[in-house]
Design a protein around this nucleic acid. Structure first.
Lengths: 109, 109
DNA sequence: GAAATACGCAACCATTTTGTTGCGCATTAC
DNA sequence: GTAATGCGCAACAAAATGGTTGCGTATTTC
């Protein structure tokens, strides 16, 4: 049953990715290293609290996982949600390609 | 030079996908058929104007294209933006996989 | 030409989102 | 033990979002 934690609906994941700040957080965390909020908000224009809020949104979307270690909250990237989003996009793409294929064979006959 | 129309930044595309109504519009339009606003808003709970606004957002994100034909505005799916989004996700995934790979070989040596 | 269809625009409203600041608490460093 | 660090919570403000309604205009249809 892995870690339970169902992957949220695709639109939630996309919404979480649909913000420059959050997208850059994903990009940074996708190297596998977990980072504290302080570190993550260090080279941002934003406040620590603002970054915290963004991280909460990402957590709701299943994109990251948080674990308290000592006095800091370490956030870790979680690939499942992103895989789900990717699968969704591929599904739509496939439908599009199929439609193109049908059109083509219709024209050619 | 194709049709110019540069693909917007990934976060804009993701934001456009990050809404259930818009996501279902994408799903419907990805069959290649262009549809009028009236048709698209027919089996929705929403007003025509609400759907119009969503379609505008999608157009800004490069997900659809609009063309006036007679008295109706036909919206057509446009795969480029979606491909860009997909490419972005794959980039992040690759970075994640690489990180895992490095970790694994480090542990194993 | 009159009625019906399809739409655009603008104003407006409620809610959500994004961000801030202030404060208090736990944990670590010295 | 005192100071510094890292964080959470709550209150607040501003802006963006998602939606509605009313009205005017162009295009078909009959």
């Amino acid at each position: 049953m892995s870690t339970a934690e169902p992957v949220p609906a695709p639109d939630v994941v996309f919404a979480a990715l649909g913000d420059p700040t959050r997208l850059s957080l994903v990009a940074r965390l996708s190297d596998g290293q977990s980072r504290s909020i302080a570190v993550l908000s260090a080279d941002t224009e934003l406040t620590r609290q603002a970054v915290t809020k963004h991280l909460r949104v990402m957590e709701e979307a299943g994109l990251v996982e948080v674990a308290r270690v000592g006095r800091e909250s370490r956030y870790t990237f979680r690939p499942v949600a992103l895989d789900a989003a990717r699968a969704y996009l591929e599904m739509v793409s496939r439908q599009w390609d199929d439609a193109l294929g049908r059109l083509k064979s219709f024209v050619e006959e």
